[in-house]
């Protein structure tokens, strides 16, 4: 379902890829925020690619730039204070950053959609959930109120909200957390987007509900062959659904890998730290591992490798030289001077 008002020459009607061009490609993206204290460099040259039907998990702690990158893709950063001094975000080969605001709002919600962390605050409290879902059809497709509401009920059924027909006129606060996130999902997939960005979609939910939501997302993705970007700091969530993982630290990608490789053997000390800080039953009673130190201050980034003040394997050149993203194999890369040693377990 392409919107006719988007210039078709900008968006070649190709499925999935154009030659070798992925569905969505972020290329050397930089985002900075002007603050009273100075310029905060939130994203410093991030690149990643997503193909149709693929799930990319972007992993990292708060302030790593994972959400900012996603918001830059959506075009929902407040500019100013945000600024994108460098980089490209190509969707089907077209750099979104070159489009006008009007062109971008045609892509937002229709071709690239987003789910937010806390559905209670992300849904408007004063409108019914039906109204908020139906709005997608009414504004973007010009449907009548009645037809749009029928579509809303259909979508609520699809995300398995019980008694959708009776609940379409309820308000967000009348639903449970899990149900609210389902409504958020229904709204985001309303117009069959090609890319869905889920920004910590399960963080605000309890564990059993988390699993259901992830299952639902995975199922919807299979049905429609969407590209899914899953932003999270929860390694447990990632393992089941992701195809590949990009680990972010200090506004950079520090490791790229297919999901199974990373779990069996990390190629960056930060990833290793993350994996070791997952609580394990066989380690019961022992102190839980935690990465020492604090996340970097975006206003005053460490020299060299941003992770060096916290890195257990730090060498002298880590303090001075910014590591490049070394290619390990066709699908793996690591931004560590000593990735070989980290992989072998001989580092430090």
């Amino acid at each position: 379902m392409k919107n006719p008002s988007v210039d078709t020459h900008l968006l070649p009607a190709d499925s999935g890829t154009i030659g070798t061009e992925p569905l969505l490609a972020v290329d050397n993206l930089h985002v900075e925020f002007s603050t009273r204290q100075g310029v905060a460099r939130a994203v410093n040259g991030v690149s990643y690619a997503l193909n149709a039907g693929e799930t990319l998990a972007v992993l990292g702690e708060s302030g790593s730039g994972k959400s900012v990158t996603a918001q830059a893709i959506m075009g929902i950063l407040d500019m100013p204070p945000a600024r994108i001094p460098k980089g490209e975000i190509r969707f089907r080969g077209t750099d979104l950053l070159q489009l006008s605001e009007a062109q971008r709002s045609q892509i937002r919600g229709q071709q690239i959609a987003m789910i937010f962390q806390d559905a209670l605050s992300a849904l408007n409290p004063v409108f019914t959930v039906g109204w908020q879902i139906a709005e997608m059809f009414r504004v973007h497709k010009g449907m009548s109120k009645k037809a749009a509401y029928a579509k809303a009920v259909e979508l609520m059924d699809r995300v398995r909200i019980p008694a959708a027909k009776q609940r379409v006129n309820d308000y967000p606060h009348q639903f449970s957390g899990g149900m609210r996130q389902r409504i958020m999902i229904a709204m985001s997939i309303a117009l069959d987007p090609e890319v869905l960005i889920a920004d910590e979609p399960t963080t605000a939910l309890d564990v059993t509900v988390q699993a259901q939501i992830m299952e639902l997302l995975a199922e919807l993705q299979r049905e429609s062959n969407m590209g899914l970007i899953l932003i999270t700091h929860d390694l447990g969530v990632v393992a089941d659904v992701a195809d590949k993982i990009a680990v972010m630290y200090g506004g950079r990608i520090v490791e790229n890998a297919p999901v199974h490789d990373i779990y069996s053997n990390a190629a960056h000390p930060y990833t290793k730290g993350l994996l070791e800080s997952i609580p394990r039953v066989d380690m019961k009673g022992q102190e839980l591992y935690a990465i020492k130190g604090l996340p970097p201050n975006l206003l005053d980034m460490p020299t060299g490798c941003a992770f060096h003040p916290r890195c257990p394997f730090r060498q002298d050149n880590c303090v001075t030289d910014v590591p490049a993203l070394h290619e390990i194999s066709g699908t793996r890369s690591s931004a560590c001077h000593y990735w070989r040693e980290v992989l072998d377990g001989t580092a430090g």
Binding site: R108, A113, F116
Partner: peptide, 21 residues
């Protein structure tokens, strides 16, 4: 507010984001 950001992410025109949401 988050829901205003959501409305923008839904591709709603600015006038609607302000006037309705």
């Amino acid at each position: 507010a988050d829901y205003v950001r959501t409305a923008v992410a839904k591709g709603m025109p600015r006038r609607r984001v302000l006037g309705r949401h």
